[in-house]
Design a protein around this nucleic acid. Structure first.
Length: 838
RNA sequence: GCGGGUGUGGCGGAAUGGUAGACGCCGGGGACUUAAAAUCCCCUGAGCUUUGCUCGUGUGGGUUCGAGUCCCACCACCCGCACCA
């Protein structure tokens, strides 16, 4: 092999990509007898170009997929496109293009970008959710769910832009105003489609317990999101003769209730017949619908003049309409205990309501004043008649028992989880397959009429839903009575599309969503990789959808993702300077970066180097994968994605870093060039290092600890470079080619061919490890005196405690430190350290 | 506001409760070269009275023979909050 030849990614990359394509190296065979391994990364939204974050995500999955293949698995590693969504409609409005054309062009471009990175993907299973051969099956599944009683319609609030006369996504509401019109956003009720995810709350919660290969943080987030709470629902008698049911998770604090609050759309509030109340309720309609907005808004209330009789004290509590009470949770009314709930505390402070203490650290603290905030923690009950002195949990049980005895209410489990609203008043989504008939009501479209496809001739120049405006699309005959009827014009939330795509990858029959036998072969996904931002919604919806299909008997598997990994973002420093009073940002390719400063290439002026933050278009701190692949080749880019930062943490992109990676690619190539098939002689320490590294990298890759695997490859590379020629060295080089193959596949194929490896390295088995070579026979022992390191010594592995103690005491450095003091104790940790305590 | 996470040299980070800083980047010095690039070698946490000693893992406490790691309190930053994907 000629070591003078430089490795040239600009020709080698494409050559091997074609070779893999030709040989169909990464095509998954479901009839294979090998153990199956389904490796999946969250599929991308085709926004236009591949983002560097995608590159990181897919590189991680790719290393695992290639490693799994090398270790004898039949690997399914597919790719597709989460292709419905708002950006396509925005492009249609801004550029006058069709969402479909825009999306498909993006897919073509992004697919070419992914190909350039050499990912080991089975492209024969590619799918796009915006194509009728995908969403038609989704419509069928939606009808199945309807027939299983898991779909219903109800009124629900949306963000309404009163100028554009259109529904806004939360993202389109900026500081309470519509992003285009700038008009104050209002809450408006619409009749919408819902999926009964709450029917599965209990099993979605319990199922988390079996997902031991999911990050604890994600399981915890889902648990809190589902939010099971045990509490009490009971009714107050109101001064107007009505009864008002409330729900509380803290019945133990009932003696601390100083007022009652209802949501603005609660029937009690709606029934109040005066202008001031109507004005206040209208005021509550202002603003958006997000939890963050509702909970950070100033607490506002309206005293209805109605009072509620306390079930134990008989006191008359004022009833307020309050903007922080949600109609969707519990009964839409709460007993407010300001001493022990922060929102109630703020409200009571503002409106001058009493703040009694009913929980205290001890019975002696019954009169302790509050320190400017509510105390929500544990303690004993005080100022509460028959509850005084009880622990919180005992008091909860006692109150529930007494309320139940009075026939006034009942202990109840309530979930924070709400049903999933899937209606969107938009064009670019899956049409909801239902028909509205005046005579027959809402009826599902006949299955043989599927797919119900989107009309192509649509207008985006007027705001609102193009399906609703379309002259003919919605007009159909009722499948029941044959009379005139109208199609549903709402489309499905794009989260529905991503709730079952992993099933469609396993098989793609034309006549049904999936083949149950193929699903059984491949599912669950062995390793799912994606961003932490999907920790709750996408992952919960996908779990729900899978369980719903299992309940309907369509599949066996209940949990779609056996292991989950959430990777960090790719970040970059920003470059900006003040120009005419405002901050202008510059892109990295407009900058020449020196050690301490950054200059704008155009005019040589210095710009400020800002914090390392998530890449975003507005800060211009983005890098384009195509450009860096052109410059450094796919392997250097892949190597960068795996180096340094632990994969779950953010990865700061830097020009210096990618250059270092590129240098390492060429350094490896030079080393591979030194392979000598005829070399003789044994180099035992190098053999040891090679086998230890092989074993450690296998462990690292299986645990997705790519940064550690990378560090070990650097170490082994250094060791091989320093070693004198020998058969061991040649074996180490050959092994090194295989160890880097999952990470730098193009370089590895080129080297594998050059050293005479059989076939392609992508098809080669992972190098065998001789376990006899994994153990060292000497160890370094740290000697501490009073917990501080004084000396290190070399001892045979497994040396006795007595020997280690004697060796430690024999050290001059140790004796100097002890300086004649009495030795009280010596702690010996075998093969590790000796600690002498004086 | 609520829920979740992260914090270690100039930078990214490593470290089953047991030698803090592996490995990489940056920087400094040297070799090779007419010169440069490339490559190779050495140094690189801070301080000090430098055979060595002291300090040092966001801050303040605690447990332990021994704490980056365990416990308590706090600070800063990041992610999510149901119509962004």
């Amino acid at each position: 092999m000629n070591s003078d030849t430089r490795f040239d990614p600009s020709t080698a990359d494409a050559r091997w990509q074609n070779a893999w394509d030709q040989a169909q190296t990464f095509r998954a065979d479901s009839n294979s007898a090998k153990p199956k391994s389904y490796v999946l990364e969250m599929f991308p939204y085709p926004s236009g170009r591949i983002h560097i974050g995608h590159v990181r995500n897919y590189t991680m999955g790719d290393v695992l997929a290639r490693y799994k293949k090398a270790t004898g698995h039949e690997v399914l590693h597919p790719m597709g496109w989460d292709a419905f969504g708002m950006p396509a409609e925005n492009a249609a409005m801004e550029k006058g293009v069709h969402p479909g054309g825009w999306t498909r062009a993006n897919i073509a471009h992004m697919k070419a970008q992914l190909k350039r990175l050499g990912f080991a993907l089975d492209w024969s299973r590619e799918l796009a959710t915006c194509e009728p051969d995908y969403y038609g099956h989704e419509q069928a599944l939606f009808i199945d769910l309807y027939e299983a009683g898991l779909v219903y319609r109800k009124e629900s609030e949306v963000n309404w832009d009163p100028v554009d006369m259109t529904v806004l996504a939360n993202e389109q509401v900026i500081d309470g105003k519509g992003w285009r019109s700038g008009a104050e956003v209002e809450k408006r009720k619409l009749n919408q489609w819902f999926l009964k995810i709450t029917d599965f709350a209990e099993e979605l919660l319990e199922g988390l317990g079996n997902l031991e290969n999911w990050p604890d943080k994600v399981r915890l987030m889902q648990e809190n999101w589902i939010g099971k709470s045990k509490g009490l629902e009971f009714s107050f008698d109101l001064s107007n003769g009505a009864t008002l049911p409330v729900y509380t998770t803290r019945p133990d604090t009932i003696f601390g209730a100083s007022f009652v609050a209802v949501a603005a759309d609660h029937p009690v509030a709606q029934a109040i017949d005066n202008d001031a109340a109507r004005a206040f309720i209208a005021e509550c309609k202002k603003g958006g619908t997000t939890a963050a907005e509702l909970e950070t808004a100033e607490k506002l209330g309206f005293d209805t003049g109605i009072t509620a009789k306390h079930p134990f004290t008989g006191a008359d509590l004022p009833v307020f309409i309050a903007n922080f009470v949600l109609m969707d949770y519990g009964t839409g009314a709460v007993m407010a205990v300001p001493g022990h709930d922060q929102r109630d505390f703020e409200f009571a402070t503002k409106y001058g309501l009493p703040i009694p203490r009913v929980v205290a650290p001890s019975v002696d603290d019954a009169e302790k004043p509050f320190d400017g905030e509510a105390e929500a923690g544990e303690g004993v009950i005080v100022n509460s008649d028959f509850l005084d002195g009880m622990e919180v949990e005992d008091a909860k049980r006692e109150i529930i028992r007494r309320i139940e005895d009075q026939g006034r209410g009942t202990g109840k489990t309530v979930w924070r989880l709400r049903d999933w609203g899937v209606s969107r008043q938009r064009y670019w989504g899956t049409p909801i397959p239902f028909i509205h008939c005046e005579a027959c009501g809402v009826v599902p479209a006949p299955k043989d009429s599927l797919p119900i496809t989107l009309p192509e001739d649509v207008d985006f120049q007027t705001p609102g839903n193009p399906l609703l405006r379309h002259p003919s699309w919605k007009h159909v005959d009722c499948p029941h009575c044959g009379g005139k009827a109208e199609r549903e014009t709402d489309t499905l939330d794009t989260f529905v599309d991503s709730s079952w795509y992993f099933l469609r990858f396993a098989s793609q029959p034309a006549d049904k969503p999936f083949d149950a036998a193929e699903v059984a072969k491949w599912l669950p996904v062995e390793q799912y990789i994606g961003g932490i931002e999907h920790a709750i919604l996408h992952l919960l919806y996908a779990r729900f959808w899978t369980r719903a299909l299992a309940k309907m008997g369509q599949i066996e598997v209940k949990e779609p993702f056996a292991s989950l990994f959430t990777q960090g973002m790719v970040t970059h420093e920003t470059y900006s300077r003040k120009e005419g009073g405002k901050t202008v940002y510059y892109a990295p390719d407009e900058i020449s970066r020196e050690a301490e400063r950054a200059l704008l290439t155009a005019d040589g002026g210095e710009v400020e180097i800002g914090r390392v933050i998530k890449m975003s278009k507005s800060k211009k701190n983005v890098v384009d994968p195509d450009t860096i692949i052109d410059t450094y080749g796919a392997d250097a880019v892949r190597w960068f994605m795996l180096s340094d930062s632990p994969p779950e943490r953010d990865l700061p992109w830097s020009e210096a870093g990618i250059e270092g990676c590129s240098r390492f690619v060429h350094r490896l190539w030079r080393l591979f060039g030194q392979y000598d098939a005829g070399a003789t002689g044994e180099d035992k320490p190098l053999d040891r290092k090679t086998h230890q590294t092989t074993a450690a990298i296998a462990e690292d890759v299986e645990a997705l600890g790519f940064n550690k695997a990378v560090a070990r490859i650097y170490e082994l590379t250094g060791a091989v470079e320093k070693a004198a020629p020998s058969a061991s060295r040649s074996a180490a080089i050959r092994t090194l080619v295989q160890l880097v193959a999952p990470m730098m596949p193009h370089l590895a194929e080129e080297a594998w061919a050059a050293i005479g490896g059989e076939g392609m390295v992508a098809d080669a088995a992972w190098p065998a490890v001789d376990s006899a070579l994994l153990v060292e026979d000497e160890v370094t022992i740290a000697v501490q005196h009073k917990g501080k390191l004084r000396d290190t010594l070399t001892a045979p592995k497994g040396a006795s405690k007595e020997d280690l103690e004697a060796m430690a005491l024999a050290s001059a450095k140790v004796q100097r430190s002890i300086d004649g003091a009495d030795i009280r104790k010596i702690i010996v940790v075998p093969d590790r350290l000796v600690n002498i305590v004086t």
